[in-house]
Amino acid sequence: MRMFRYVSWLYIRHFFLIAFALAFFFAGLDYMQNAGRLNGFNIKILYLFYKGSYALSLLFPIALVLSMIVAKMALIRSNALVSFYALGYSKKEVLRPFIWVSFLLTLLYIALHFTTFVNAELYAKALMQKKQNLTVTRNLFVKYNDSFIYISQLIPSKKEAKDIRIYRMHDGDLVQIIYGKSARFDGGIWRIPEAKIVTKPHVEGLSSEGLRIEYKKDVETLAGFKPKILTSVFEGKRYYTIQDAYDALNLLVSQHLETSKVRSILYYMVVSPFFAMCLVIIFFLSIPPHARSTNLLWVSFVLTGTTLFVWGIVYLLYRISLSGVIVPEFGTVAAVALLGAGALYSYLFRTNR
């Protein structure tokens, strides 16, 4: 247990040092390029924070692998690793702290994607462009169940819409139009105050009833039609929380629309981070336990380059699947599954050598 605590703390300490160093180095370079376009000390601090958060969202898995490499090098240079083996600890027992810590940190990273952590780049861009609202979608025209909806302006942050028109269809025929100067999303439904409703009857002849026009103070409609999902799905944006992505997937499935893009984003947030844990297992067993038989500096350089290469491949597959060129399951999921198989093989067989 003492060995587990010692190695775990060593790994966690190096992880936080590397992760925040990478994040704020990235943010610092970006800040030096754009500082002149930012007005006010508070704006600059916020911009640095958001850019650092965005960098952390990209570099978190890489930091998991790099910190394992640095931690094992520290164990080797201090002769602690050889001492553990001499005391009777097996490779599996020394590897377990790295597996558990990387697994728990990966779960933490995934949990952050349930929050506005994923919108850090959007917030930074809003500060740069001096915008009050992060997104204002204009001239949105979408289909929802048996209705077509036109929205002149949609403000997701306020859950409001301006100049909304709802065209209700039945068996391919237009039967009703609802007009509203504004609308507000109230939890699960949209409320349209001072709505104008035009109902078209079924026309059988000249004596049939004509158009019926009504005015209502409050109309409840479009249950489950969430504003954030609207802008993300129908404008093609990729800034989702995991909950938003799940809701968007359900919405697209219910409307019988293409879901590959949302599935790609969901897999990228939930599945792809585990590639780091797989590399931690594979690379740990690739580093020799002592410095006499090999050049540790060269090994560290090669493994760092390999980490960046694998991360680049995973990200490339995500971007390709996002564009619809390949099925998402054959992109990110397949790559992580292959790495998982390699990690499982290494843990079961290479630890016995």
Rank of each mutant, 00 (worst) to 15 (best):
F4N: 11
Y109P: 07
Q129C: 00
V175K: 14
L107F: 14
V280Y: 03
L127S: 06
A337W: 02
V175I: 15
L257Q: 14
Y345Q: 06
L230N: 02
V302W: 08
F60M: 11
L10H: 08
L104D: 02
V70T: 07
S57F: 09
Y89C: 04
N119H: 13
I99C: 07
R319T: 13
M73S: 09
G188L: 07
V336D: 04
K91Q: 13
I265G: 00
I177K: 08
E209M: 13
M68S: 08
V70L: 12
Y215I: 11
F141R: 15
V299R: 14
E209V: 14
G172D: 02
I155H: 02
T307K: 06
R191L: 14
L249Q: 01
V142F: 13
S182V: 09
L222P: 07
R77L: 09
L154P: 06
D247E: 15
N79G: 00
V101M: 09
G305D: 02
F275M: 11
L112D: 05
V142N: 06
L230M: 14
N133T: 09
S157C: 01
S254L: 10
P156F: 10
A343R: 06
T135V: 15
L308N: 03
K261M: 11
K226F: 11
M269A: 03
A120M: 08
V253L: 14
Q153C: 02
L257K: 15
T351A: 07
Y215L: 14
V333W: 02
V253I: 14
W9Q: 12
Q33F: 08
S83E: 00
K237I: 01
L339V: 10
H256Y: 12
A74I: 07
L22S: 10
S8D: 04
L66P: 04
L222N: 08
V118W: 00
F103A: 15
F114L: 13
A291Y: 12
R350T: 10
G187C: 07
F141Y: 13
Y215C: 00
S272W: 03
V253H: 07
I110P: 02
S264Y: 06
F141W: 09
F275N: 03
L249I: 00
E93V: 07
E194V: 02
F349V: 12
V219L: 14
L29F: 15
D163A: 13
F117R: 03
F349Q: 06
I189D: 06
V270E: 00
K226E: 13
V325H: 08
T294W: 03
A245L: 07
N145M: 10
G180S: 10
R350A: 12
L344C: 07
L29P: 01
F49A: 13
K196Y: 06
L107G: 06
G236Y: 04
F16K: 06
S157K: 11
S208E: 09
K200N: 13
T259I: 14
Q255C: 02
K181I: 01
I166N: 02
L22T: 04
I320R: 08
P156N: 05
S102W: 08
A334V: 06
L38G: 09
S78M: 03
S260T: 13
H256C: 06
L297A: 11
L154R: 01
A161I: 15
V82F: 01
F98R: 05
A80P: 00
Y267C: 04
D30I: 15
F349L: 10
G210V: 05
Y240C: 07
M68A: 11
N133S: 12
I197D: 04
P156L: 11
L66S: 05
E93Q: 15
L134T: 05
L206G: 03
I326W: 06
E93Y: 01
F185E: 05
L127E: 13
